[in-house]
């Protein structure tokens, strides 16, 4: 209250990232996420159970059609485990991307009235997806026990890293789409299509080795989600299976998207209130 704060408001003022300010507003991350989680499951009978049921049903469907009927290889894992491990992260990515891309438009009433670092909005949208991930993860453990799946100790660093890579891989495109969506509402219609396409282009329900052409494999691993899902499965399939080149390509592409997304977001954020 008493400390003297002096600041200026100017047209050209643009901080590169505003980490200090974000830290000052850290509680708002929590509140936005908390609010969105509350709203998401208000007036539903099953509540948080939905976060578990969705990937479960998807797993059953994919197991029946791709695992049994089409006999798609699964890196020597039981197909349900293979597909569930992929879907866990994929769902976090797809719901995170959808809600962060729409987040700025959905919160336009707040944006037009109150100032706070805008980056909080798309980030919180992704944190909601992280919450759903934890809910679904609870089901993953009994599934592993049921199939008596051996797990390498590498899980303690592989899994958190995989989650982190997913978060970052979602934040980049999420920010980019959120910023674009404010100005061009066309993107609202692009997003579902984009996610659908990415789902089949990312090795979620099939291993990347299914493709016989090496060039095509290099294209597929450009998806930031490749690295995340690969890392997540690593403790299950064994570290020997690791393809470091693919992982680094995927990391690189994710980092690139993160930079582009956040920079574009920061560049345009000052004018969100004028367009929203």
């Amino acid at each position: 209250m008493s400390e003297s704060i002096e600041f200026t408001i100017e047209s050209s003022k643009r901080t590169l990232f505003g980490g200090k300010e974000l830290w000052r507003y850290r509680e708002l991350f929590y509140f936005f996420t908390w609010r969105d989680i509350k709203i998401k499951y208000k007036q539903t009978v099953l509540g948080f159970l939905w976060a578990v049921l969705q990937p479960l049903f998807m797993m059953v469907i994919f197991t029946l059609f791709f695992g049994r009927a089409l006999n798609i290889p699964s890196q020597d894992l039981p197909y349900p485990i293979f597909v569930f491990s992929g879907l866990l992260l994929w769902n976090m990515f797809s719901t995170g991307l959808t809600s962060s891309a729409n987040s700025m438009v959905n919160n336009s009433a707040i944006i037009k009235k109150i100032y706070f670092p805008r980056l909080i909005i798309p980030t919180s949208a992704i944190l909601v997806a992280l919450f759903d991930f934890f809910m679904a993860f609870v089901l993953f453990i009994p599934l592993l026990l049921f199939y008596k799946q051996p797990i390498s100790f590498a899980a303690w660093w592989c899994w958190p890293l995989a989650v982190f890579v997913t978060l970052m891989g979602t934040l980049g495109p999420g920010c980019l789409l959120a910023a674009l969506n404010v100005k061009y509402r066309d993107f609202r219609y692009v997003i579902p299509f984009l996610i659908q396409a990415l789902f089949f282009l990312t090795p979620v329900i099939y291993p990347v080795t299914l493709l016989k052409y090496p060039l095509l494999q290099y294209v597929l691993v450009l998806s930031p989600m490749y690295a995340a899902i690969e890392l997540f499965r690593l403790p299950l399939v064994g570290l020997a299976d690791m393809n470091t080149t693919f992982l680094f390509i995927s990391f690189g592409s994710g980092t690139f998207l993160l930079l582009i997304g956040v920079l574009y977001f920061k560049k345009t954020e000052a004018f969100f209130a004028d367009f929203a």
Binding site: T8, I9, E10, S11, I111, K112, A273, D274
Partner: peptide
């Protein structure tokens, strides 16, 4: 909420 086009404000 929105930046000025020119000029500045010191607070």
């Amino acid at each position: 909420i929105t930046p000025p086009t020119t000029g500045r404000i010191v607070s």
